[in-house]
Amino acid sequence: MADWIPIALSRDVPVGITRAVIVDTREVMIWRGEDGVAQVWEDRCPHRGMRLSLGFVRGNALNCLYHGWQYGAGANCLRIPAHPDLTVPPTIRANAFAAAETGGMVWMSDDSAAPPPQLPALTPVISLAIEVAPERVLAELGGSTAEPLIELPFAADTLQIGWHRVHAAKTMLHATGAGADIGAATAHLRALRQNLEQGVAA
C-alpha cells in the first residue's frame, strides 16, 4: 500500500468535529481543533479503549466521551478529570498517525519517513463509499492500487480522486477537481457507484 493514504475530504472535517474512518479494517479518527490542524489518531482511548470519534473537541483538545480524558494536539493526555490535581505522566498518549492535508484531502501515514504528496489546491467534489472491492473500483476508473490518486477525465476537467480501502469489499473515494462542474461530477460518480454495485450484485 502507498505510504500516504487519503482518508477524507478536508471540507468534511471542519474545526470542532470528529470523524470516524475505517482504513483497511482499522478504526481511525480525524479531528480538528481551533488551530485548524487535522489530526489522525487510532480511534481508541488508551484508558479503557473507548472510540475517540465519539468524543468532543473543545479548543485545541479532544475529550474522550467515557471519562473526559483530554488530549492535546500532540496526542499527549493533558487532563484526567477524575484526578483534577494530577500532573498526567507524559507516557499517557493517544496513538497518533502522521497526518497531512494537500489537494483538499486529509492524508494519513503509518510511517512519516516519506514526505506527503504535494498537490495544488483542488476543489472538493464528493466522498463516496462504494460497496465494491478497491481492485474493481480502480480497474473501472483506470487507476492503480499502487497509487493513492486516480486521474479521471471528466468534461473539461480532470478529477483527482483519492481512495482508501475500507475492507476487502468496500472502497471510499474522495473526489476533487480543478474547476469542474461539481454537481455534474457528483452525479457522474454516483452513477459509477451504482453501476459498480449493481455489477457486484449481479
Binding site: 470523524r19 470516524a20 465519539l54 468532543f56 475529550n63 463509499a129
Partner: peptide
Amino acid sequence: EDYPAINLWQRQVRKLPGFVGMPGVPGY
C-alpha cells in the same frame, strides 16, 4: 463512517439552541 455529509449535518443539529440528547445520543 460511510456518511460524511450526515456526520457534518449532525453536528449542526447538535449546535442548535435547546438541543438535548437522549440515551444513545450523547449531549456533548
